[in-house]
Every structure is written in structure tokens, then in C-alpha cells.
Amino acid sequence: MSNEIGRPSESDSGAAPYNFGGEWKPSQLEIDRRAARKERNRRNAAIAIISSIFVIGGLALVAVTSPGWKSLSDTFFAWAYGVEVLPKIILGFGTNVALTLIASVCVGIFGLSIALIRTSRSPALAPFRILATVYVDVFRGIPMLLVLLLVGFGIPALRIKGLTNNVLILGTLAVVITYTAYVAEVIRSGILTIHPSQRAAARSLGLSHFQSLRFVVLPQAFRRVTPPLLNDLVALIKDTGLVSILGVTDAVRAAQIASSRSFNYTPYVMAAIIFLLVTIPLTRFTDRTLRRSIERQNATGVA
């Protein structure tokens, strides 16, 4: 399906997108065309199935017949052990989910604020604009693992009274710092795609600067950047696994504990599967949103 992005899907061509009123009957040529298209689709599907069986089957065969397969499947696919440790990993995954929820709300608020500061032209905000630019440049350029280590071990090392030593809070903080930089840029790019004439129209109607943003610019900007924002959400869920480095007992850490006790890596595979159970549906949802937004733009003729 993904190769159909950017053009109206063929299955839609039967139903007229506009209701012209009255009954519409396809012409003979259109009926023939549909029959031919159906035939072509059937042939394509058959070819796709056969080639998939060959390629995937071939790869599986190579893996299973390799000399190390037996020991590998014992260490990574010991399902009985996997099921035994599953409750602990799921419990740990709860931390990842909670962290994702809290972080995404914070990232949304801070990201929007920074995007607004960077796109404003008010002279009073000039120092904040500079700070925001520096912040984005710095934290988009540092690996998140380093930010985690610096925040997680750096802040407690300051030994300032009242500052937390809680690794979960520090881990969340590091995730928020990093992702805010990315999300701010996504939102900013969305704001910049809205043509100045929209703001001019709003202002000339008497709307204030803030009202123009709130009712005219931002709603259009967010519509355009929803797919990349969802994409960042998927990445965020995965990256919450990195807080395990600080000792937070999330899914990754739980798997690590379980596997170090038995010298068996199946818990890692279990953790991976749990992540996939959440991220794959979300990715599909993102794809669908993206496809829809492209179709909508094509339908209106304004890209």
C-alpha cells in the first residue's frame, strides 16, 4: 500500500468523490478498464506471494541449517523461560509507558513554546530567540545516551539540596530535553509553511497577533506536521528504553536482570516483542495519517 502514497488509490476510482446528484453509471470503456485492472492486480498479487515465499523461505533455510543455529535458538528463543520472566518485563514496560505519556505531554508544551519563540519577530523576545536557537542546536547534536548520562549522573553530583536524585525523574528530564529540541523544529517548520498571506488576512480582519496564531496559523500548521510528530512519538517510546542505563527498572532493565541471572538472552527478545506490539500499530497509524494528509492536499490542489 505504501507505494500508493501521493496518488489517489485505484480502488476509489469507482466512487465519485463529489456528489453530482443523480445516478451515475460507468461507461462500457470504464467497465472494461476496471476488469483489466482487476486482472492485473490479481496477477501482481500472485507474483508478490510467490517471490515472498522464495525470498523469506530461502533466508529462513539458510539460518536454520547454519552450524550455530542450535545454540543460538537455545540462548535467544527459550520460550519456556521467556514466558516465566514475562510478567516482570511487562511490569517494567509499564514504566516505559508512563514515561512516554508524561514526556510526550511535556515535550508538546515545551516544543510548541520554543517553536513560537523562534518564529516570533518581537524584539522583546530577542534574547529568548537566541537561547532557543542555541538550545535546539546543542541538543539535536548530542547523542541522547550522553544527555542521559550527563543529566542522570551530573545533576546528583552537584549535591544541591532540594534537587532530586530520583533516576526516574532525571531520566524523564533527559528524554524531554532531547525530544523537545526535535519536536520544536518540526512544529517550527510547520508554522513556516503557512503562507504570510494567511496571517495578513487574519490581521486585516482585526485579529490580534495572538489570535491570528491561535485561530489561523497554528491549526493549519499542526495539521501539516501531525505525521512527523507521530513519527517522533514512535521514536520516543523506543528511546525510553535508554533510561535503563541510569538503573531505572523499565522493560529493558528487567530483561537485563533476568538474562544476567540465567545467561540466557530470551528476555531481551521478549522485551523487543513487547515494544513491537506497541510501536508497529502506531507506525501503521502514522502511515495512514500521512497518506490521508497527502490525499487531502492533492484533492484540494494546494500542496
Binding site: Q198, A201, A202, S204, L205, L207, Q220
Partner: peptide
Amino acid sequence: LGIVFQSFNLFPHMKVIDNITLAPMKV
């Protein structure tokens, strides 16, 4: 003052009725 532009500049994310009522309501 009211101004009408060459390129219409309607708000594409709002229905016609909402385009018209935005300024009376908010301003």
C-alpha cells in the same frame, strides 16, 4: 477597514460560515 485580496486568502481549514464569523466573534 476591510480588505479583499487578489488571492482570496480564505482560511482553508475552516468552513465558509466559520471564515465569516471568526472576526465578528473574536474581534
